[in-house]
Design a protein around this nucleic acid. Structure first.
Lengths: 144, 144
DNA sequence: TTTATTTAAGATAAACTTGTCCTAAATAGA
DNA sequence: TCTATTTAGGACAAGTTTATCTTAAATAAA
């Protein structure tokens, strides 16, 4: 479903959020350890999330990653997915046809739309902050 | 969502079915032309579908691919997907955790189950024969 | 100002998916 | 039996994703 990039990205964002809730900035090393991901690859992913303004980064001693107060309440999974994978998941024909639309649909067109709607809803409805709270209360986990 | 392999595989199967409905065996060349897919790659995919007994192949002059009478009524999308991509789509954690289950769930566990259920239902409910009939009546298309 | 710490950026490598090509095997028909 | 046709199989090539490594840039603190 998701690319590795997006899997690590979502896990990283939930971990960063759980720290930002306590005003704690976290370093790459801590993040990679907490979510059990390859450090350098995670660095690249965070770089991209930072460019996309989904997360904030600070260089130097006491630097690291954090989510600013403004975004805390609004960030959802779809922001992370779009920042990392673009609109791949939402656009294009499910069977790979170049021009598939309701006038000239592929055999799965309508069925695909329904699945896509379900996925989109899931991504829009889930706030990173809520997922981070589940993590903090021990209701969910980010590794193993 | 699907791999290129599965995209071409599904398109090929629907086309083969629409011909098998008229007792017509079709050659690789016709299939690749009909679904606008790379011929050699399509050959590999059909080879795998044939090994998995999803489609039947006949070598030599007047050879080609066909779906036998027994399977015609029962084949659904899920048979094609499993033959080509295995259980990838149905097993494993959505966030890539090695051990994610209802006891120790990832933050998306439950939400992911729902999406997966929707996808599985879509694949189980759609018979290849019905999709082929839509194609024949001009309700759907396999290329462009 | 120097040093240590930390992210940014770019080059490169490894793994996997997608795609091609060539030869072998099967078989129908002359 | 010979030839033409068609799928099977294996090797290989190209493209993409995943992952690593090295150096640069920023910045806090001594």
């Amino acid at each position: 479903m998701f690319s590795k990039t997006t899997e690590y990205g979502i896990r990283a964002m939930i971990f960063i959020m759980s720290n930002s809730l306590q005003d704690k900035r976290v370093r790459l090393k801590e993040i990679a350890a907490a979510i059990d991901s390859p450090e350098s690859f995670t660095a690249k992913i965070l770089q991209n999330l930072s460019k996309a303004n989904v997360v904030d980064s600070v260089k130097g001693p006491h630097g690291g990653f954090e989510i600013n107060k403004d975004k805390m309440q609004t960030l959802t999974l779809i922001d992370v997915v779009i920042a990392l994978d673009g609109n791949k998941l939402f656009e294009g024909c499910g069977l790979g046809l170049k021009a598939c639309n309701s006038e000239k649909p592929c055999p799965l067109h309508q069925h695909f739309l329904e699945v896509r709607t379900k996925i989109t809803a899931m991504l829009v409805e889930n706030k990173i902050i809520d997922l981070a709270q589940d993590l903090q209360t021990g209701l969910s986990f980010l590794k193993q």
